[in-house]
Amino acid sequence: MEFNEIKLLLEKYEEGETSLTEEKQLKEYFTSEEVPKELEIYKNTFQFAKNSKNIQLERPVTVNRNFSKYWYAGIAASILLLLSFLFFDMNTSNNIKNSELGTIEDPEQAYLKTKETLKMIAEVFNDGREDLEYLDEFNKTKDKFIKEQ
C-alpha cells in the first residue's frame, strides 16, 4: 500500500471514521510489513489489538451447576437422615440393655411381681371405667326414640 494512502487512512482511523474493511487493511499492513519509522508507533497498537483477539477462555463452562448443587444437598440430607435413624436406634437399644431389668433373680418371684403390677394397672383402669357407666343412661333414653333395626 502507498505510504500516503496509509497516512490518510490513519487520519480517518483516529477520528473513528474508518469502515471495518479499512481497519482490516490497516491491521494487515501494520502486522505483516516493515513499516517506515514514522509510523512505527501504530505497529504495536495494531499488534496489540490482533493479539488480544487470540485470548481464549481456558476454563470449561457448565450450565448444570445449579442442578448438581441441589443434587449434592439432597444426597447429604438423606445420608444425615439415615445416620440419625441408625444413631437413634443404637441409642435406645443400649438404654434397654443398661437399664436394670433383672433385680429379681428367681423367675417365680418375678412372675408374681409382674402379675401384681399388671393387676394394679387393671384396677386403675377399672376405676376409670366405673365412671363411664353413667353413659348407659344415655343409651337407655336414646333407645326410647331411636329404634335400632
Partner: peptide, 22 residues
C-alpha cells in the same frame, strides 16, 4: 465514534509520551 476516536488518540498520545518516536 467519538468515544472510539478518544480512545485511539489517547493510546497514541500516551505512547508518544514515553517514547521518542520520530
Amino acid at each position: 465514534r467519538v468515544a472510539l476516536s478518544r480512545a485511539r488518540k489517547k493510546i497514541k498520545e500516551e505512547l508518544l509520551k514515553t517514547h521518542n518516536y520520530g
